[in-house]
Design a protein around this nucleic acid. Structure first.
Lengths: 194, 194
DNA sequence: GTCTATATGAGGATAGAC
DNA sequence: GTCTATCCTCATATAGAC
C-alpha cells in the first residue's frame, strides 16, 4: 500500500470538489438551477450520483459554494483594480473596465448570477449577496460622481448602473454577435466625459 | 331547472378561466413559474386542483395563455399609441412613454415576462415572442434614429434599449422606492434631445 | 472514495363520484 | 362543473456493499 499523507487526501478531495463545481457551474449557467438535476451534474463530472453527497451535503449547498467562489473572485478583482487608482475619474474607469472584464472572462459565473437574480425561488439564497453588491456599486458610483462635481448623484448613479446592466444583459441574450467592446467604448464616451 | 343558454355557459366558463389566470399570473410573478404549484394556484383561485384541468390541459398551457394575453395587450397599446404619431421624435417618445406606462400599469405581466426570460428551462415557450419583441423594438429604434439623422444607429439603438431595460430592471428590484418617474424624465432628457 | 440500489416526497395529471 | 382520491413520474437524498 502506498501510504498517503493527510495533505494528499485533502488535495484529491479538493480536486474532486472542484471538478464537480465546474460541471455544476456550466450546467446551472446553461439550463438554470432548478432544471439541472444531480444526475446530470454527476454525469458531467464523471462520477456517480451518490458520490455527490460525499462532497456536498445538498444541491443547495453546492450552489452556495459556487456562488461564494464567484463573489470572492469578483470582489477581489474589483478591489485590487480600485486600489491602484486614486483619482475619481480613473476609479470610475477601473470599475467599468473591471466589470466588463469580469463578464467577458467568466461568463458562466455571470450567467448563473443573473439567472438566479431573476428566480424568486432561489433569490433568498443569494439575496444578501446581490443586494449587497448592487448597493455597494451604487454607493461607489455616487461617491465618485460627487467628487466629480455632479449635482444629482443619486439619479445619475442609477442611470449609469442601469445602462451598464442593460448592456451586459444584451450581451447575455445576444451572445458573441453582440459588439460588447464597442458598447463599452460608447458607454465610457457617453457617461465618463468629465 | 333553470335552462341556460350556450352563451351563459360560455360566460361562466370564461369567468372561471379568467379568475384562474389572474391567480396564476399573481403567483407566477411573485414566486416564479417553476416554483408555483397547481395546488397553490387552485387554492388562490378558490377551486380544487382537479378542476384546473377542466380549463387548462396543463400548467404549460396555462402559462402560454397568460403570456398570449400579455403580449396581445402590449402590442395593442404600443401600436395604437404609435399610430397617433407621425413625426419621428414623437414616435420615439410614444414608445418610451408606452413602455413605462405598461410596466407601471401591469407590473405582474412585466415581472412574469422578465423572470421567464431569464429561466432557460422555460425560455423555449416564449423565446419566439421575446425575441420577436426585442428585435422589433430595436428595429423601430434604429428606424427612427436614422430619420433623426443619427450616424451609428445600430449602437445608438442598443444603448437606448440597454438603458431602458436597465431602468425597468432597477424598478423591478427596488420596487416602489425607486423613482421611476424621475428616471423616465432623465432618460428622455438624455436620449431624446434631438 | 466510489458505486448501486433504494427510500422518500413533491407535484403534475387522471378517474370517477356527485 | 366541481370535488376527492389516486396514479405516476422524477429528482433529491440515503444506505450499505465493495
Amino acid at each position: 500500500m502506498s501510504p498517503k499523507t493527510k495533505e494528499q487526501f485533502k488535495e484529491i478531495r479538493n480536486q474532486s470538489k472542484a471538478s464537480i463545481q465546474a460541471a455544476a457551474l456550466e450546467l446551472f449557467g446553461k439550463q438554470g438551477y432548478a432544471n439541472t438535476s444531480i444526475s446530470q451534474i454527476a454525469k458531467a463530472a464523471g462520477i456517480s450520483k451518490g458520490l455527490m453527497y460525499n462532497y456536498f451535503e445538498s444541491k443547495e449547498v453546492l450552489l452556495r459554494e459556487i456562488l461564494l467562489a464567484a463573489f470572492g473572485e469578483g470582489e477581489n478583482l474589483m478591489e485590487t483594480s480600485l486600489l491602484q487608482q486614486s483619482a475619481p475619474k480613473e476609479q470610475l474607469l477601473a470599475i467599468i473596465e473591471g466589470t466588463f472584464y469580469m463578464v467577458r472572462s467568466q461568463p458562466q459565473y455571470w450567467k448563473l448570477l443573473t439567472t438566479l437574480a431573476f428566480q424568486p425561488e432561489i433569490a433568498g439564497e443569494i439575496e444578501w449577496a446581490t443586494k449587497h453588491k448592487r448597493e455597494g456599486t451604487l454607493e461607489l458610483f455616487k461617491n465618485i460622481l460627487a467628487q466629480l462635481g455632479v449635482k444629482d448623484t443619486e439619479k445619475e448613479a442609477y442611470l449609469m448602473g442601469a445602462t451598464l446592466d442593460g448592456i451586459l444583459l444584451q450581451y447575455f441574450f445576444l451572445g458573441n454577435t453582440y459588439p460588447l467592446e464597442d458598447m463599452k467604448k460608447l458607454y465610457i464616451e457617453r457617461f465618463c466625459n468629465f
